[in-house]
Amino acid sequence: MSITIPDLVTVRARHPEAIAEAAARRTRRPLVGSTGRLMIVAADHPARGALGVGDRRFAMANRADLLERLCVALSRPGVDGVLATADILEDLLLLGVLEDRVVMGSLNRGGLAGASFEMDDRFTGHRPEDVQRLRFDAGKLLLRIDYDDPGSLETLAGAAGAVDAMAARRLPLFVEPFISRREAGEVRNDLSAGAVTRSIAIASGLGGTSAYTWLKLPVTRDPDDMAQVLETSTLPAVLLGGEVGSDQEAAYERWRKALRLPTVQGMVVGRSLLYPAEGDVETAVDTAVGLL
């Protein structure tokens, strides 16, 4: 990075208007480029208090290290852009690494990891008007639905409102749906074929139009189920990376199979590329790009 952390702090303290100025002059590009595929690096986890990677509880807490990893990932051929919250995207704007890149704002981070209110995924991040004002290219929302939690209805209503607000601005919105439940006090996402199928059907029907809605989906527990699961909707979809596992080769193989399916347009992957279990960021990112 040509700008150091002290430089970023100085700019933020003395010239906060530099962020809006950098956003205004940023060179934009189409959401889907000439390859017809989309490769996005995700880094919106910290704002939900999810700082751990594998057995490293605070791996993502070091902002200088995270920014360096993001800069490396964004410099690799085939990487289209980044998904993050305002603080991280603004750091990257000031660092000048978002030129000709897809920039996606994260809309809801209110369901803090491990909190008693974790399932309350309120919209505490970018608003649709922020995405438009900053000339970003898309937004993303998390939609976790617990059939035993009446509060999930409010989450659904908030998500539908976000779909409508983004569509009114002709901005794509990536919806990441899960059927979730609490087990021993922890929120677990159900990755069975039936649960993912239901989540796709629910997410696809949100709002007054689905014209600008994309789906951000996990690979099912049994990857062989993905073909049938994805028959649930005609909306374009990207695969999410999920937790960092010890067997990264198995994860690559699951992605490789799912990427062959007609509605899958690419990937949005975070910790497994930025903090790979084995090797460095360059190798992990290049391997994932190769799957496309």
Rank of each mutant, 00 (worst) to 15 (best):
R198K: 12
D7C: 05
M104F: 13
L230K: 04
N108S: 07
H126L: 15
P77T: 02
L235N: 05
A59D: 10
A201M: 12
R26W: 04
D121I: 05
T124C: 11
T287V: 14
E243H: 12
N189F: 06
S272A: 15
S192L: 02
Y147Q: 12
P6D: 08
V244K: 03
A251M: 12
P150A: 09
W214A: 09
G158F: 01
A165V: 04
V131N: 07
D190M: 02
D55K: 12
D91T: 11
A13E: 14
F123I: 11
P30G: 10
V72F: 02
S34G: 06
S106M: 08
R188E: 11
A211S: 15
F136N: 00
V102C: 07
A159F: 07
S199L: 05
T287F: 01
L67G: 11
I19L: 11
E176N: 06
P218E: 07
D146P: 03
A288W: 01
L142W: 06
D7N: 14
V11H: 05
L217W: 02
P77M: 08
E249W: 01
L93W: 10
D225T: 08
A160C: 11
S2T: 14
M226R: 05
A61N: 13
D190W: 00
M119D: 13
P262D: 12
M119S: 13
A20M: 11
E243P: 03
V285Q: 03
I145H: 08
T220V: 08
D164E: 11
L239G: 06
E68N: 14
E183D: 10
R127N: 00
E282A: 12
A73G: 10
D7K: 06
R169F: 05
G241N: 12
A157S: 10
P177W: 03
D130M: 10
N189I: 00
R135C: 08
L217V: 15
S210G: 15
D224H: 10
A250I: 04
G194V: 01
G161H: 04
A113I: 13
T27G: 13
D44S: 08
A24Y: 02
G242P: 09
G245C: 08
S246V: 14
L94C: 09
A193H: 03
M267F: 06
T263K: 11
L173F: 08
A227Q: 14
V11Q: 13
R26S: 09
M1K: 10
D224V: 11
R109H: 10
A42P: 02
L83K: 07
